[in-house]
């Protein structure tokens, strides 16, 4: 794991705070445009990395210089995974809005909002909790026999 893959842990926390505010506003105002903007942010973060997303750039250009030097770093991959999860939820929400099913819109935005809120306030790590569970469900292995065979 090269050091160049490491980013200031405060970056993703800052981004999660903005995301929380944007998603909460989208939910309260039922605004599809706010959600669309957030979806684009998620897509850039998931595709190019959270440090290249608009919130990541905002953190580096405006916020970081005003803070103490970073003391904690994390790998890019965990926050990138979280951006992907956010993207999936917001795409589902957009589909709900396009199909005019408010329940899907509200449900999916709420799910993304909850994840962003937990991340910004408690530093909740979506990848830690969900990634292995998803792997466990989607990848079948013949349990303990896999060892014996090896």
């Amino acid at each position: 794991m090269s050091p160049s893959n490491l980013i200031d842990v405060r970056g993703p926390r800052f981004a999660a705070t903005i995301t929380t505010l944007v998603l909460a506003s989208a939910l309260l105002t039922q605004s599809i445009w706010l959600l669309l903007a957030q979806t684009v942010v998620f897509a850039i973060g998931a595709g190019l990395g959270p440090h290249r997303s608009p919130y990541g750039l905002l953190f580096r250009k405006l916020v970081k210089a005003r803070l103490a030097p970073p003391t904690e770093f994390e790998d890019l991959k965990p926050p990138q995974f979280a951006q992907l999860v956010g993207l999936l939820f917001s795409v589902v929400a957009l589909i709900g809005a396009v199909l005019d099913v408010p329940v899907i819109f509200a449900g999916a935005v709420s799910a993304a909002l909850a994840a962003a809120f937990l991340n910004s306030v408690f530093g909740y790590c979506l990848g830690c909790e969900m990634y292995l569970l998803i792997k466990r469900v989607t990848h079948h292995s013949n349990s303990i026999r896999a060892f014996v065979a090896r």
Partner: peptide
């Protein structure tokens, strides 16, 4: 690496990392 050892992960009921 939990991802690579899903059989062991299931056997030991590991649900999240670390």
């Amino acid at each position: 690496d939990a991802e690579k050892e899903l059989a062991l992960v299931r056997t030991l009921h590991i649900r999240s990392t670390p």
